[in-house]
Design a binder for these strands. Structure first.
Length: 281
DNA sequence: CTACCATCCTGGTTGC
DNA sequence: TGCAACCAGGATGGTA
């Protein structure tokens, strides 16, 4: 589930619990993750102090007073929780536990096990396959309409699918793509390569806008998502089309239309929600 | 090279 | 109520 706003929220939540603290103990609890934990994880992390936390796309990066960077991806159902209980008992899907020098546990939990945890070196990070071909950060200055236009040039796929492609722009997932396309008034079925620059101007603006608002709201909590302190995000209450099939969208309602306009279709196996009145091309 | 599809998992929801 | 089928926010690797 977690897309950029959720990952950013988790990262920010982890800062007070990890920054300038030392990892005292590393406990792996599942040897059979899809991508097994690095063998040398304990050795690389125990005794190291956390210098900073950053985010790239949907990856949380933990930087240490060493060359190692701990990379965490939450997949579909992953969480990272701060647990301060003295008598904390690991739960079923608590796969990795980092205990800090103040006794706080940082718990990585992921029922579906689509997530991953690995190490990269600070210097070699950009050549790692996860980051090598990754597109611009949508909230950064190098994500703008001309760049998006260039990235979409010649693409015959739909704009919905193109925006989910992390090489075009990173950090977006199904929810925020649907929301941004709605706000930009662009059909999810529009051919990616054939959208005009002015419309891409609107789209890039709406992408940045919806992401920023979602971060402010602490992300969206559907089923699994929690902030690092266990709190729910609340941006799900602001969805305009996502998971609102059969409703009248906000824009139509404001114009006085009362016929259900939000439709659900399936594009390359995933749900797309859009307004059939306002997103015609 | 692009595009499409299946697949990795568990758990919650839906429908009979 | 019980159970089976279906569905889910992501990424990747294989095939066409």
């Amino acid at each position: 589930m977690p897309e950029l706003p959720e990952v950013e929220t988790v990262m920010r939540g982890l800062e007070p619990a990890m920054m300038n603290k030392e990892i005292k103990h590393v406990q792996k609890r599942r040897p059979d993750l899809r991508i097994p934990f690095p063998e040398n994880l304990e050795k690389a992390l125990e005794g190291r102090a956390v210098q900073s936390l950053t985010r790239r796309a949907k990856y949380i990066l933990v930087h240490f007073d060493s060359d190692d960077v701990l990379v965490i991806h939450l997949g579909m159902s992953g969480r990272v929780l701060i647990v301060s209980d003295d008598d904390y008992q690991p739960e079923k899907h608590d796969h990795l536990i980092l205990t800090m020098n103040d006794g706080t546990h940082i718990v990585y939990n992921d029922p579906r096990r689509f997530g991953m945890v690995f190490l990269v070196s600070q210097d070699g990070m950009l050549s790692h396959k996860a980051f090598k071909d990754m597109g611009s950060e949508p909230l950064g200055n190098d994500f703008n309409a001309p760049i998006l236009k260039e990235r979409l040039k010649g693409k015959k796929t739909s704009i919905k699918q193109a925006l989910l492609d992390q090489r075009v722009v990173c950090g977006l997932g199904n929810i925020y793509v649907c929301e941004a396309l709605y706000e930009a008034g662009i059909s999810p079925k529009a051919l990616a390569g054939s959208i005009s620059l002015p419309r891409l101007e609107i789209l890039t603006r709406k992408i940045k806008d919806v992401l920023a608002r979602a971060i402010k709201a602490g992300g969206s909590s559907l089923k699994d998502f929690r902030q690092a302190d266990g709190e729910l995000g609340y941006f799900q209450h602001s969805f305009l089309v996502y998971d609102r099939e059969g409703h009248v969208c906000k824009g139509c309602k404001e114009e006085g239309y009362d016929k259900p306009c939000v439709k659900r279709i399936v594009q390359s196996g995933r749900s797309t929600f859009y307004c059939m009145r306002r997103q015609k091309r």
